[in-house]
């Protein structure tokens, strides 16, 4: 059923390696080591890739749905955090991904839900104003955080996580076509590192099963 994930995982592995080598990451001995990106061989699941070493959380400052400045590192420090790059004029994968997370989150104990940060960064900042983003995200979960800002800033942050997005493009008929990321990055509350990558075919069951572990910073 998950045949699609094989090339996806391979592409991801490549992009993760490229992204890491491009930012030079790690110091001394670490930088010469190949990046250990491994699929979860234990359970045979391919909706998930475990990243070792993890991605550094991008230094990203944008505007939230209330029009306020939002510093990702500062505001999500020590919090289990799920980060996704998408846009609201997206009929399929963006709402699917956010719904999967919203449904899974509701199954956590209330106190644990409050610790979790779910951050949706728009890839279509021109159309996704703070207000537009806010009304869309509220339909999914009122606690979800929506961020918008300069496309170049957003693209740069995505690239640091091996996620490739292109600027929105105007078609001949006037419609605007944007790109969404195909992964959700989970950051550990213990290290603040991005240690898990969920691919776009991760289901609501995957998130429901894994969120209790993620909020503890454990490997699912």
């Amino acid at each position: 059923m998950r045949k699609k994930t094989l090339p996806l995982a391979a592409a991801l592995l490549t992009s993760a390696v490229l992204a890491l080598s491009a930012c030079g990451g790690g110091s001394g001995d670490e930088s010469s080591k190949p990046v250990d990106v491994q699929a979860d061989a234990h359970s045979g699941r391919r909706a998930l890739t475990v990243l070792d070493p993890p991605f550094t959380k991008p230094d990203l400052v944008l505007t939230d749905t209330h029009g306020e400045k939002y510093d990702l590192r500062e505001r999500t420090k020590g919090r289990p955090t799920l980060l996704y790059f998408g846009y609201t004029h997206c009929p399929d994968i963006c709402p699917l991904t956010m719904s999967n997370i919203a449904v899974a989150k509701k199954q956590l104990p209330k106190a644990v839900q409050e610790k979790l940060r779910v951050v949706f960064v728009t890839t279509d900042p021109e159309r996704d104003t703070p207000a537009a983003l806010g009304s869309w995200l509220r339909q999914q979960d009122p606690e979800f955080i929506g961020l918008t800002g300069k496309f170049a800033t957003i693209q740069h942050a995505a690239r640091q996580l091996g996620i490739s997005i292109d600027p929105p493009k105007k078609e001949k008929d006037g419609t605007v076509v944007s790109t969404h990321g195909t992964e959700v990055v989970a950051f550990s509350p213990k290290s603040d590192g991005g240690y898990l990558l969920y691919h776009e075919d991760a289901t609501v069951d995957d998130y429901t099963k894994d969120l209790p572990k993620i909020v503890q910073g454990q490997r699912p």
């Binding site: 059923m1 998950r2 909706a47 075919d201 289901t203 609501v204």
Partner: peptide
Amino acid sequence: ATYNPGAGGA
């Protein structure tokens, strides 16, 4: 909204 018959699961 979470329905995804291609991906298996519940």
